[in-house]
Design a protein around this nucleic acid. Structure first.
Length: 880
DNA sequence: CGCTCCCGCCATGCC
DNA sequence: GGCATGGCGGGAGCG
């Protein structure tokens, strides 16, 4: 390409002479090149780096020779340049003619040729993705720079980003150690966790605040102690190694890179627009956002994005929002990480969902739990030592889901420890920071949120809430459901999900997207009444309680099982999971059907999961009346989970109960047809919409929300019948036989809105996975289900926030749920719904009141997608 | 015209 | 003072 371009390009503008030509060289051999630089280069070598090459490099690096090289390179450059001109035959030809031009032209690689992304590819081509643990590869900045024919400054850009992902670590001055992607999954997981914490907390905090205080404004003020936040990410060496590594101040690029990645990992949709990311990053860093700063941030993000793109972790996409089309990046890297998910994995093929990078997935859940602690100790990513360690780890820990996974678990040691540290740090910071509303708002946005300013919580949850789509692992589910997105929506093939899920998402999401805040999906038994359901969130419920409605809900819950406020969460959780899943997808504008699964169970692990499960079960039940069995199973599990989950409460990962897997599987198998009721929110709050599964046990619905307590938002339960009218319709009636009646009557599910938020978190928890209780008798287990939720909520609360975000993670587990839901989801309704606000694009929930609107909005999917954005925007604008 | 983002000045810090 | 790092933003390439 280069050659071509050059030939072509060159003519255009003779630019300065640049060494760049080297690019051709891409390649390889550093030293050699010196002498005969040019031509060699031509082919990039993928392979290139043979062990030998590495050795050479190392050697060179080690030795003072390096310097020499530099010298050489300098020398070379000229040479190369001259040669280059020669080199390319074609070029020459073209160029040659014009003598004058020649020089310039040749040299002048087009801008593209010089792009950081291309440069990064060349850089990466030199090193193996999965280097043998034994070999260490050292990278000499000077060498690389000379080889690649670029200034060292550029190499710093690349290396800093790579370092943020621990693909390399700095060993010494000019020296970096290449680790390859062995640790990538772990690192990503860490980032995900950290992201959840940060953002999650924020969210939670926001919610809280909101609940407490405002709905609109103040939250942000809240404060933000962000400064520290950034630090959070620093893997850099806490302990280990030389502090030297850290030296610089913040190294914004590195931190930014991590944060940027975190946004993706937290985002349901996996799509992050640059502007949103910039806003978030800026906010974290600073309150003030000048335009100039914004621009600068965006520039940096491009730099980072180019590197990440070269790594195959993200890809450029465009999100179309109301305002227009915005550049965005979609995460195409591994989404799921081992974590706890073992369980999940087991049962759910969902693992499939793992995106392309399977490798990524590995994280053992253990790591999450244990890991953190451990990690705490270590911490330093950077440390030179790490390299080795990491390698080892790597070897041991496999990251990749499949292969690597094993290793991963092991790894946890150092790397994980480091990671953990970060996470821990982040948490703390986050917690601290959390206070600041702004952040939270912002952060949340990422994927999650959609919440409009007002309904913060709600919103957030909602967005995601869209129906979960399950990726389809189990088609059966989806279909059954009336809604089934799948069925109805062709768009989402389950399969697609598997990948990242994303793909499909956008456009057609099978899932339903609700306006961000506006909708909630609930699954649960509806028994009681239809009424409102405010759900108390589990822990926090209070908020919910705040609202009058809550009581009923509570009762319901209690009846169901929700006993504790927290408990209620369960039901919700599941829903939440779904939502979360959806959300992820949605993030930007679209919802993607991805697989929900994965995620992380970390945060609220068990409990969440369980909750999720419940939901699922519920859904299932609802969906398929027939399926009660499954439901039961699930339900039971959930219970267990709950118990477990409680323990785990903290986000730390609980153990993932094996059960979950089963459940999920079961679910999948089962024909559930979840029915959902969609409730539109009253105008008030942002209107939340709830979807309930028809049959679920009431208990299930309960919210976990804990954090969200605030949700008090008025939610309206709509009888299935009512729903029918809605676009959503599918959910309600069709499927489920049961449901209808139940709906109408029961509609009241308990769930706390707030829980929603929490809910998501719940999902995460491994537990959730485990337990899906049986929905059939939703009521039956109320406790259990509830518990899970509760667990989550209480513990989570803080974490919860994170959780929410995370929820997506949960998704993985939840997968089953997703499936169920999806069906309906497809419905789009959400999208449709959206219409109400544009701004809302995210979400404003309430806005839609009319069904019609919903329909209209379909197009809006996008809006769903960018929850973050929404949030951001919303915040500014007030939601309706 | 606006999105991208290259390029390199220059600040920061360590030695 | 020199060198390694890397923040930063002007302004150009490109679609």
């Amino acid at each position: 390409e280069n050659i071509f371009d050059r030939s072509r390009m060159a003519p255009k503008t003779p630019i300065k002479n640049e060494p760049i030509d080297l690019s051709k060289q891409k390649g390889c051999t550093p030293e050699r090149n010196p002498i005969t630089p040019v031509k060699i280069i031509d082919r990039p070598q993928p392979d290139p780096w043979t062990p030998t090459a590495n050795l050479k490099i190392l050697v060179s690096a080690a030795s003072p020779d390096m310097r020499d090289r530099e010298k050489k390179k300098e020398l070379f450059r000229p040479i190369e340049n001259s040669e280059q001109s020669d080199t390319p035959d074609s070029l020459q030809y073209d160029i040659v003619d014009d003598s004058t031009v020649d020089e310039f032209e040749k040299q002048r690689p087009s801008r593209k040729q010089k792009s950081l992304g291309l440069l990064c590819q060349k850089f990466l081509a030199r090193y193996p993705n999965y280097p043998l643990s034994t070999e260490k590869t050292t990278i000499s900045l000077d060498e690389v720079a000379s080889i690649l024919g670029v200034e060292r400054r550029r190499i710093y850009d690349i290396v800093n980003v790579l370092e943020s992902l621990q693909l390399v670590s700095r060993v010494a001055k000019n020296q970096y150690c290449w680790h390859g992607r062995h640790n990538l999954s772990q690192t990503l997981k860490m980032l995900q966790d950290a992201g959840e914490l940060q953002y999650g907390e924020l969210m939670t905090s926001q919610h809280r605040e909101q609940d407490l205080e405002y709905k609109f404004g103040e939250r942000k003020k809240a404060i933000i102690p962000d400064s520290q936040d950034r630090t959070l990410l620093d893997f850099s060496e806490p302990d280990c190694v030389s502090a030297s590594a850290n030296s610089r101040k913040d190294k914004s690029l590195r931190i930014m890179s991590q944060k940027f990645v975190m946004l993706f990992l937290v985002s349901k949709t996996k799509i992050v627009t640059l502007d949103i990311a910039a806003k978030i990053l800026i906010e974290e860093t600073q309150d003030t956002v000048d335009h100039s700063k914004f621009k600068t941030k965006v520039r940096r993000l491009y730099d980072i994005a180019n590197v990440l793109t070269s790594l195959g972790l993200i890809k450029k996409v465009h999100v179309t929002e109301e305002r227009g089309r915005k550049p965005a990046f979609k995460w195409i890297g591994p989404v799921e990480f081992p974590e706890n998910t073992d369980d999940l994995r087991g049962h759910s093929p969902a693992s499939n969902p793992l995106p392309e990078t399977q490798r990524g997935a590995c994280a053992p859940y253990q790591t999450s739990t244990a890991g953190k602690q451990r990690l705490t100790r270590h911490a330093s990513f950077n440390s030179a030592q790490p390299c080795e360690a990491t390698k080892r780890k790597v070897s041991s820990e496999p990251n990749s889901p499949h292969q690597e996974r094993q290793a991963c678990s092991v790894n946890s040691d150092k790397n994980s420890s480091k990671m953990i540290n970060l996470a821990a740090v982040c948490r703390q910071k986050i917690e601290e920071d959390t206070g600041s509303a702004k952040k939270s708002n912002i952060t949340l946005p990422v994927s999650l949120l959609s919440v409009p300013g007002d309904s913060d919580f709600c919103v957030n949850p909602l967005p995601q809430a869209v129906f979960p789509v399950v990726q389809a692992d189990v088609p059966s589910f989806s279909l059954p459901v009336g809604i089934s997105s799948q069925a109805s929506n062709p768009s989402m093939p389950p399969a697609s999900k598997t990948e990242n899920g994303k793909p499909t998402l956008l456009p057609n999401q099978p899932f339903l997207c609700f306006p961000s805040s506006s909708l909630f999906m609930l699954c649960g038994g509806l028994q009681e009444n239809n009424m409102s359901e405010p759900l108390p969130t589990a822990g926090d419920l209070g908020s919910r309680s705040a609202e009058a409605q809550a009581p009923t809900v509570c009762q319901k819950r209690s009846s169901q099982k929700c006993s504790s406020p927290a408990a209620p969460g369960d039901d919700e959780e599941p829903a939440a999971k779904k939502q979360t899943l959806e959300h992820r997808d949605l993030p930007l504008s679209l919802v993607v059907p991805k697989k929900p699964e994965s995620p992380k169970a970390e945060s609220s692990p068990g409990s969440d999961c369980s909750a999720a499960v419940h939901l699922q079960t519920n859904h299932l039940d609802l969906a398929s009346p027939a399926a009660p069995e499954t439901a039961n199973k699930e339900s039971t599990k959930p219970l267990d989970c709950q118990e477990q989950g409680k323990q785990s409460q903290k986000k730390v990962p609980d153990d993932p109960p094996p059960g979950n897997e089963h459940i999920s599987k079961e679910n999948a198998n089962q024909p559930f047809q979840p029915q959902y009721l969609y409730v539109q929110p009253t105008a008030g709050l942002s209107s939340f919409n709830f979807l309930f599964s028809a049959n679920q046990a009431p208990g299930a619905i309960s919210l976990a929300a804990n954090q969200m307590p605030s949700l008090s938002v008025p939610c309206v339960m709509v009888p299935s019948a009512a729903l029918a009218s809605f676009p959503l319709v599918p959910f309600t009636s069709p499927l489920s036989p049961v449901p209808d009646s139940s709906f109408s009557a029961a509609a009241s599910t308990n769930f706390s809105v707030s829980s929603l938020a929490s809910a998501t978190p719940v999902f995460r928890s491994s537990t959730a996975v485990v337990t899906p209780k049986v929905s059939a008798a939703p009521s039956a287990d109320p406790q259990q289900p509830a518990h899970p939720a509760l667990h989550l909520s209480p513990v989570l609360t803080r974490s919860c926030s994170a959780v929410k975000l995370d929820s997506p993670v949960c998704m993985g587990h939840p997968v089953t749920l997703l499936k169920l839901q999806q069906p309906s989801s497809a419905p789009l309704t959400p999208k449709n719904i959206r219409p109400a606000h544009h701004e809302a694009f995210f979400k404003t929930p309430g806005s839609f009141g009319d069904p019609a609107a919903w329909k209209k909005n379909e197009g809006t999917q996008t809006r769903n997608a960018s929850s973050v954005q929404r949030r951001l925007e919303i915040s500014s604008t007030s939601p309706d």
